[in-house]
Structures are given as C-alpha cells and as structure tokens.
C-alpha cells in the first residue's frame, strides 16, 4: 500500500526535527502509543493500541529512524506485529521551510501488511492511515501550542 501526504505546521523545521527526535514527545503525540523505549541509537521498542473503525488491537515491535539529514529529511521504519497481522512500513519524510516560520512536511512511502490486516483490512487501511496521520499532526499542533503558551 502506498502512503503519502503533506501537512503544514506552525513551527520551524528545526523545532519539528527536535520534537520528532525526542522519544518522550514522540510517545506523547503518536496516536495509540502506550510505550516507546529506546533500544539503541534511533531505534525504539514500541507498543501501541490502534482503534480506527474495525481495525483495533495491540501492535508491538520496532520503530526506527534512518538516513537522517538533520532538519531536512529522514526515513521512518515501522515493523509492528499484532494478532491481526503485521505491518512493515518505510516512510520518507521531507521538511520544507515555509515563510513565517512554518514547515511543510511531505511524506511518502509504502506499507506492507500480512494476515487478517491484509485480507480484510487492505481496503480500509488507507483510511486508517490517513486518520492516524491526521491524529498525529493534530497532537503535534496541540503540543506546539502548549509549548508556545509555556514559553510566553
């Protein structure tokens, strides 16, 4: 399955980069994440609870970040297992600075599914992914606002 999209955030590429590279913040803003533990450099053990429509369950596995070009781009690698099947995804993320200190995040990649997810879920998974990414960016926006309020 192809995954792609873009989102504009009211923050600079540098601050976005710092947020994504901070496991505590990442744990807070990633939808459904119950636990995110650093396993090694840029590699995390993740447990998440996903519930979007008929797709719900606990996912366990690894999350890692590779091909990092600081403040500019990276590749997010997801390898999650669940009773419904497994998801393996590689998402390329590019940050584009916009005027007034904003950032456009463009992401594109593929997700491979197996098990029940592939058999029953494939048709609805693109909807699930888009809901999850929306939730991710919303949570990030909320986080940014909170931060800005604290700073001011």
């Amino acid at each position: 399955m192809k995954v792609s999209g873009s989102h504009t955030l009211n923050t600079t590429p540098v601050s976005f980069w710092n947020m994504v590279m901070d496991p505590e913040i990442l744990e807070k803003i990633t939808p459904g994440v119950k636990e995110l533990k650093e396993k090694g450099e840029d590699t995390y053990h993740a447990i998440s609870e996903v519930k979007v429509g008929p797709v719900k369950g606990e996912f366990k596995g690894e999350l890692s970040i590779k091909d990092k070009v600081e403040n500019h781009s990276c590749v997010l690698v997801v390898d999650q297992k669940s009773k419904m099947g497994n998801v393996v995804a590689e998402i390329q993320m590019n940050l584009e600075p916009l005027p007034e200190g904003n950032t456009q995040i463009n992401y594109t990649g593929t997700a491979k599914m197996s098990g029940v997810l592939a058999r029953m879920g494939q048709r609805i998974m693109s909807g699930v992914v888009s809901t999850l990414s929306k939730q991710f960016f919303q949570a990030m926006e909320t986080h940014i606002k909170e931060q800005q309020q604290t700073e001011s």
């Binding site: 592939a118 058999r119 029953m120 494939q122 048709r123």
Partner: peptide, 14 residues
C-alpha cells in the same frame, strides 16, 4: 493476490 502473495479479498466484504 497482492505482490507479496496476500489474498486481499478473502472475505465476503470483498
């Protein structure tokens, strides 16, 4: 089947 050999319509929904 998708390219990985997953049967993507293995239910009466599909």
């Amino acid at each position: 089947f998708d390219e990985d050999g997953q049967m993507i319509n293995a239910s009466y929904m599909d």
